[in-house]
Simulated scan of single mutants.
Amino acid sequence: MAMSGGSDDGQPMMDINTTPLIDVMLVLLIMFIITIPIQTHAVKVDLPVNDPNQKQPAIDPVKNKVSIDPTGAIFWNGTPVDRVRLQQYLEQSVTMNPEPELHFQPDPKAKYEVVDQVLAVIKRSNVTKLGFIGNEQYYNDF
């Protein structure tokens, strides 16, 4: 039976009582949220096994570093090389797609003649991505 709307006209109230409907909907929503299985997102990746005996590639496909120490020795990614081997590595790296960056870092005490010769080798190999590393160490000299 419907109750009177508060007026004394004696007419029954024609609006539906939505409070129980909302309560039931909230209970159903909470039950639905609780019963949803927890979703686990897993990406299966086969990681390489670290083998200390494995030889590292001479040319890194991302970036390579040519450095010169104070005695004039030339290093390719930390391995000592001569100018001929440096030229071979540079020619191989230029043919890679995309071409890896070449970072050039001479020691401040290295002879200019050796640095100039290495830069000539780099220029002859047509390297397009070249960056000088360590120039900030000279900012107080000038």
Score class of each variant (00 low, 15 high):
Met1Asp: 11
Met1His: 12
Ala2Cys: 05
Ser4Ala: 08
Gly5Asp: 15
Gly5Phe: 06
Gly5Trp: 10
Gly6Trp: 06
Ser7Tyr: 08
Ser7Arg: 10
Asp9Trp: 06
Asp9Ala: 07
Asp9His: 10
Gly10Leu: 13
Gln11Ser: 09
Pro12Glu: 08
Thr18Asp: 02
Thr18Pro: 05
Pro20Asp: 07
Ile22Gly: 01
Leu26Trp: 05
Val27Tyr: 10
Leu28Phe: 09
Leu29Val: 12
Ile30Cys: 12
Ile30Asp: 07
Ile30Ser: 09
Met31Pro: 00
Met31Trp: 05
Met31Gly: 13
Phe32Leu: 14
Phe32Tyr: 12
Ile33Gln: 14
Ile33Pro: 01
Ile33Leu: 15
Ile34Thr: 12
Thr35Ala: 15
Ile36Met: 15
Pro37Ser: 12
Ile38Val: 15
Ile38Lys: 14
Ile38Gln: 14
His41Asp: 11
Val43Ile: 13
Val43Asn: 08
Val45Gln: 12
Leu47Phe: 11
Leu47Gln: 05
Pro48Asn: 06
Asn50Thr: 08
Asn50Gln: 07
Pro52Lys: 02
Asn53Val: 00
Gln54Met: 07
Gln54Thr: 01
Gln56Cys: 00
Pro57His: 00
Pro57Met: 01
Ile59Lys: 01
Ile59Ser: 00
Ile59Tyr: 01
Asp60Gly: 00
Asp60Ser: 06
Pro61Leu: 03
Lys63Thr: 03
Lys63Ala: 14
Asp69Trp: 03
Asp69Leu: 04
Asp69Pro: 03
Pro70Thr: 04
Thr71His: 12
Gly72Tyr: 05
Ala73His: 10
Phe75Ala: 03
Gly78His: 06
Gly78Ile: 02
Thr79Cys: 03
Thr79Leu: 10
Pro80Ile: 04
Pro80Glu: 13
Val81Asp: 02
Asp82Val: 04
Val84Leu: 12
Arg85Pro: 00
Arg85His: 09
Leu86Pro: 04
Leu86Arg: 03
Gln87Phe: 08
Tyr89Phe: 15
Glu91Asn: 15
Gln92Met: 11
Gln92Leu: 09
Val94Tyr: 03
Val94Asn: 03
Met96Thr: 02
Met96Glu: 05
Asn97Gln: 13
Asn97Glu: 07
Pro98Lys: 05
Glu99Ser: 08
Glu101Gln: 10
Leu102Gly: 01
Phe104Trp: 12
Phe104His: 07
Pro106Asp: 07
Asp107Met: 03
Lys109Gly: 06
Lys111Met: 07
Val114Thr: 15
Val115Ile: 15
Asp116Ser: 14
Gln117Ser: 13
Val118His: 01
Val118Lys: 04
Val121Asp: 12
Val121Thr: 15
Ile122Asn: 03
Arg124Met: 07
Arg124Glu: 14
Arg124Thr: 05
Val127Thr: 09
Gly131Cys: 02
Gly131Ile: 06
Phe132His: 08
Gly134Phe: 04
Asn135Tyr: 10
Asn135Cys: 06
Gln137Trp: 05
Tyr138Met: 11
Asn140Val: 10
Asp141Ala: 13
Asp141Gly: 05
Phe142Gln: 11
